[in-house]
Design a protein around this nucleic acid. Structure first.
Lengths: 119, 119
DNA sequence: CAGCATCCCGAATGATACTG
DNA sequence: CAGTATCATTCGGGATGCTG
């Protein structure tokens, strides 16, 4: 499993963070896991329809390898799996939170622009 | 200039944020601009040697288009250009700050592991 | 349903050369 | 120095099909 390697400079803190959350969908996945506490695979997929099942599985596996999320497999048929943040993963909440806040603010401003333009 | 399009769900705040800062090197560039307040092209390039001049120019141009950074060209020979955050760009400081904090913490922990392993 | 393997195309990025 | 243009290559990621 290859993965993006960042190398801006040894010890660059941003680089370390990107190494963990820079996958195309990882921040979005974490956002939903934080909001919902737990997520079944299909549920996550429904929350993020633009992310294919393939990508979702890949990103979740990387997050699992990095110790950010924990996967629980229920041995039932049909299969069921849930994902939740590990304790370590929870340390990312402020980061994802800051991103969510900024996005909300940005959306609100963009919305105002639309309203203004319509008048 | 094509660009990654996120489409997790209409109105998803994380998506909006990623739209702006998800370029491969944007977060790192912003981090250095925040620390140093202003950056000449070559200076930035030296701070982020792993990012080619071509990529640096492309990412800076996107940030400029999005209104995050402002470019000032000094009509001198040899040319000189500096980049600084716009007022809008400064609203991203908490986001980049959260990422930097997490990375520092992560690096510190990783360092401890190394020390532990060495003992 | 969850998720891995394979094939394959277009986008991202590096290398190199050129310009004001 | 601060870029831009072009070519060549790699790689991300979609589509599809298979399995437990």
């Amino acid at each position: 499993m290859k993965r993006q390697i960042y190398n801006c400079q040894p010890g660059c803190p941003i680089e370390s963070t990107l190494q963990i959350i820079s996958g195309k969908w990882k921040a979005v996945i974490l956002y939903h896991l934080i909001k919902d506490k737990v997520g079944y695979f299909g549920e996550l997929h429904r929350q993020i329809p633009a992310c294919s099942r393939r990508m979702l599985a890949l990103q979740l596996k990387e997050l699992e390898i990095d110790g950010i999320v924990q996967k629980t497999i229920y041995p039932v048929m049909p299969p069921k799996t849930d994902y939740r943040l590990t304790e370590f993963g929870e340390t990312l909440i402020p980061v994802i939170g800051a991103m969510a806040n900024w996005g909300e603010h940005y959306n609100a401003v963009a919305q105002q622009e639309v309203v203004k333009a319509a008048q």
